[in-house]
Design a protein around this nucleic acid. Sequence first.
DNA 1: CTTGTATTTAACTGATAGGTTATTTAACTT
DNA 2: AAGTTAAATAACCTATCAGTTAAATACAAG
Lengths: 106, 106
Amino acid sequence: MSLDTAYAALADPTRRAILARLALGEATVGEIAEPFPISGPAISRHLKVLEEARLIARTRRGQQFVCSLNPQGLKTAQEWLDHYRAFWSGALDRLDVHLKKTPEKK
Amino acid sequence: MSLDTAYAALADPTRRAILARLALGEATVGEIAEPFPISGPAISRHLKVLEEARLIARTRRGQQFVCSLNPQGLKTAQEWLDHYRAFWSGALDRLDVHLKKTPEKK
DNA sequence: CTTGTATTTAACTGATAGGTTATTTAACTT
DNA sequence: AAGTTAAATAACCTATCAGTTAAATACAAG
């Protein structure tokens, strides 16, 4: 559940798309795989990466596996960035003020 | 400034440590490199990764390069996760309620 | 203009990531 | 029990990553 694995997991667009799908509700591996042009095993490994990062959870339901978002990992990932939120939001505000103060030079 | 590069940049602990250092204020490449047990070129490439992810900015000052946090990339990285904040904070609340409702079975 | 210093770039190396196809596992169906 | 289906695992390939040392660049100072 380290930040390393969480951010590494988020770095891949396929995995972010999977998370976006799961935000709409849980889904089986097959349902998740359907829209992607890559092989089943590739999806399966993406899911494993997401699971190890604690971003999703997988449970067996009969023959299929059902995946759902795991709030835990998402929270962990965001908290590190949150630590800097004050800094950068403040910095953007200051930048904004500065830009409004500074007359445009055409 | 893609999310891919931003999260990939955040996935490395050395780079997160560099960001933490820069949150305290701008610093030269030499100052940033000092606490790390790795070579100068290795630091230089980490800085390049952070710069390409728009997480920091580098400007030359005489012979040295001064680095500072770039709020832009940090904001971009957090906004994607923010999109899910409602979901996962809600889910954690529900989990919390559930755990409080459910009597412990010893 | 030579020397020193800060930093980047180049070239190389071993490890990891993301993809493939082939095989295995486990549950359902008949 | 035999066959089908859902998904995981194995083995393999290529590209990218994080590190190294050596060389190049660019400014500063004698």
